[in-house]
């Protein structure tokens, strides 16, 4: 028996949809994974292992080859710029990254400050706009920053826009759409293509990509 195919799955809200896609592609990893506290689940009859990872970390596991494939948000791929194959747009958990702030507040003329979980995405975006900004990195509740005068704008994920609205913030510009992607380690892509290619093909069929 060859070594099992290792799949890094994001814990949390994307898990269920992602597991469903895998199931339809012929890999049933069940639904119990989320409730269990186990981090590695083995499915010897299908010769796969599933790693339960924090969504931000899936790309890292795949880049280093700890997992052969993984399901990761485009936001993380953009932010971390890692050496992995981005083979399919799974079109699940759609949202977008946007610039938001207090209504009617102009960007400061001297060193505008941007609070964000995505320092690279934010600075790339403003560079393209020809604007030099300063980043304030935060890990959560980014909406606080403009409210308390810490930053002029925030760059953050928006899915429904409710959090922005409830905190009296408005969206200024949309930066990019985000969905989950199927990613593959470059070495596994070559050395385990007999396992990975059929999986990619079957998942591709479900979302209308023929590969």
């Amino acid at each position: 028996m060859s070594k099992p195919l290792t799949i890094a799955m994001p814990k949390g809200r994307i898990f269920e949809e992602a597991a469903e896609l895998l199931k339809n592609a012929g890999y049933d990893i069940g639904t119990g994974a989320e409730e269990s506290r186990k981090l590695i689940l083995e499915f010897p009859e299908q010769n796969i292992n599933v790693m339960m990872a924090k969504p931000m970390d899936v790309v890292t596991y795949v880049e280093y080859g700890a997992a052969d494939i993984g399901i990761a948000g485009k936001d993380v791929l953009l932010e971390q710029d890692r050496d992995v194959y981005e083979v399919l747009d799974l079109k699940i958990s759609p949202c977008y990254i946007a610039v938001a702030g207090l209504p009617g507040q102009p960007l400061s003329r001297i060193a505008p400050k941007i609070a964000t979980k995505y320092p690279k995405v934010a600075s790339d975006y403003y560079r393209e706009q020809g604007e030099q900004i300063e980043i304030i990195p935060l890990n959560g509740s980014i909406e606080l920053a403009p409210l308390i005068g810490l930053s002029d704008r925030i760059v953050d994920i928006v899915s429904t826009g409710r959090t922005l609205k409830e905190n009296g913030l408005v969206e200024y510009e949309k930066i990019t759409d985000i969905t989950s992607r199927l990613i593959v380690n470059p070495v596994s892509y070559r050395t385990k293509s007999d396992r990975i290619d059929p999986l990619v093909e079957k998942m591709g069929e479900q979302i209308g990509v023929s590969s």
Partner: peptide
Amino acid sequence: FEGYAPNVGAL
């Protein structure tokens, strides 16, 4: 060309 070996995550 690039060469890969299983168990090593990089080329």
